[in-house]
């Protein structure tokens, strides 16, 4: 395998349940060694996609390749680690026993297994915990879930909402761990927590209604969308100017900011840069601020998937 081979390639993936297209022809390229965020609101199709990628569900159409191999290739499962959104453990086992069992399924034994089990128990903060898993809190189970997904030192780590059940400290620990894996392991994780994506991801795909709305590097995404948003502030008559702006062909939305200014989403940046000063001058207002807006991933996300909810 070369680094040019994407760790995960998804092409035309479709999953239909009756009349519902849960996943609708999505394409994804996850570069080797990246931390890739799979972002989307609840019900967007993230878990379904992950279930297909891991072979737990069957695609209605399309193809998934992991490290260049088909997901039906028995060797593929040796290269991946997976944590489902709600991991199920045998309640009668301890964390150590579950990790040993998981390692055994990969054929790991002897001192290698001992070393990994010890290291992962430390990582999960479960060293010395003799309680059976049945008595664990959801956070403890989630941490054990991450640990078991790493038992085979996977080349590709697939995580479904790995931080959703964790407290802020637990979340930080898991995210720090993902950052540490960057470059060595390809991490693909689904989430609806935007802060997590901003914190650790190199690339992101945003999913909505089963389709990939956009797929890019996190910085690229920010700059792509910030270039199309202008922040304006004038000395008075903000409402009248806002109405003027809404009527322009190049304007696709105007929002009032809490600081007294307004954010204008534009379809033609050059036309807007010429048009805004002219509109301000026509009303006899003083232009106090005109700048490209700095926006976070949250605003990109809301722009891309939240429009229909507003």
């Amino acid at each position: 395998m070369t680094s040019a081979t994407p760790a995960i390639e998804v092409s035309g993936l479709t999953k239909v349940y009756g009349d519902v297209r849960a996943v609708d022809g999505i394409d994804l390229d996850v570069p080797t060694g990246s931390v890739f965020g799979f972002l989307g609101p609840n019900g967007a199709g993230k878990t379904t996609t992950l279930r297909i990628i891991t072979g737990l569900a069957h695609a209605s159409a399309g193809e998934v390749r992991i490290l260049g191999r088909s997901i039906t290739d028995p060797e593929t499962s040796r290269s991946i680690g997976f944590l489902p959104d709600v991991p199920g453990f045998y309640p009668w086992m301890t964390a150590e026993e579950f990790l040993r069992f998981s390692g055994g399924l990969f054929g790991i034994a002897g001192s290698t297994l001992e070393k990994r089990v010890k290291g992962l128990l430390d990582l999960a903060g479960l060293s010395g915990v003799k309680t059976r898993v049945g008595g664990y809190s959801r956070g403890m189970k989630q941490r054990l879930g991450v640990a078991q997904a790493l038992i085979n030192a996977p080349e590709v780590l697939l995580l479904d909402e790995p931080t959703s059940a964790l407290d802020p400290l637990g979340r930080k620990e898991v995210l720090d761990m993902l950052v540490e894996l960057r470059g060595r392991t390809t991490v693909f994780f689904s989430t609806h927590i935007l802060a997590d994506v901003e914190r650790v991801c190199d690339r992101v795909a945003i999913l909505n209604h089963g389709t990939v709305v956009t797929q890019a590097g996190v910085d690229e995404l920010r700059s792509r969308y910030s270039a199309h948003r202008l922040v304006i502030q004038v000395d008075r008559d903000q409402d009248a100017l806002a109405d003027d702006l809404r009527r322009q062909e190049w304007s696709s939305g105007v929002e009032r900011n809490s600081d007294g200014g307004m954010a204008v989403t534009v379809t033609d940046l050059e036309a807007a840069q010429h048009g805004i000063p002219a509109l301000v001058a026509a009303r006899g207002l003083a232009l106090r601020r005109l700048e490209s807006g700095e926006i976070g991933l949250e605003e990109v996300f809301v722009d891309l998937v939240g429009g229909e909810r507003r």
């Binding site: 737990l56 499962s77 040796r78 997976f82 199920g88 453990f89 998981s102 399924l105 990969f106 879930g145």
Partner: peptide, 12 residues
């Protein structure tokens, strides 16, 4: 219980 998911995403 979801245990099958963790087992069957390993080489089983």
């Amino acid at each position: 219980s979801g245990t099958a998911v963790l087992v069957l995403t390993k080489p089983v």
